[in-house]
């Protein structure tokens, strides 16, 4: 059973397309002050600049928080319970959600990991953390 696939629009669609075109994780970056930000926004929340671009990042980061779900309304996810969803702080500073094959009992806050993209459709990439063990 597959999990829910979204059909994003507007800025999130631009971001997904940027990742697909670069074939790697990209994050929006302010063209003036250089701050990385996610989700994408029209104006920079630090300097209010409208200039920005999507740039490739290392994918390295650490677990800032995480959710261990024991039930899901989505049948595809329900097959996988319990599963962890990670909130990862990238070394560039922005935070992103990531799915993972790491077992929930081996996830901890502060844990270092690498993210990659998994292209799920022409308009959507899922961020993924492989189990390093």
């Amino acid at each position: 059973m597959t999990t829910f696939l979204p059909t994003p629009e507007w800025l999130l669609l631009d971001w997904n397309h940027a990742c697909i075109a670069a074939d790697t994780l990209c994050i929006q970056r302010c063209g003036d002050c250089g701050q990385w930000r996610h989700p994408p926004r029209r104006l920079c929340p630090s300097c209010y600049s409208a200039q920005s671009s999507y740039q490739a990042v290392s994918g390295r980061g650490s677990v800032y928080s995480f959710v261990v779900s024991h039930r899901s309304r989505d049948l595809g996810w329900q097959e996988q319970v319990p599963y962890a969803t990670l909130l990862v702080e990238l070394e560039e500073g922005a935070r992103v959600l990531a799915a993972t094959s790491i077992s929930p009992d081996r996830v901890s806050i502060g844990q270092q990991l690498n993210l990659r993209i998994a292209i799920r459709s022409d308009d959507f990439v899922l961020l993924w953390a492989d189990d390093p063990s």
Binding site: T3, P8, L12, S65, V67, S69, R73, A99
Partner: peptide, 20 residues
């Protein structure tokens, strides 16, 4: 577009992002 694709559909799941 951002949470449900990661298996986070319900309020309990969303709030657990900070409650955890």
């Amino acid at each position: 577009n951002a949470y449900a694709p990661y298996g986070l559909m319900s309020a309990a799941q969303h709030y657990s992002l900070y409650l955890r």
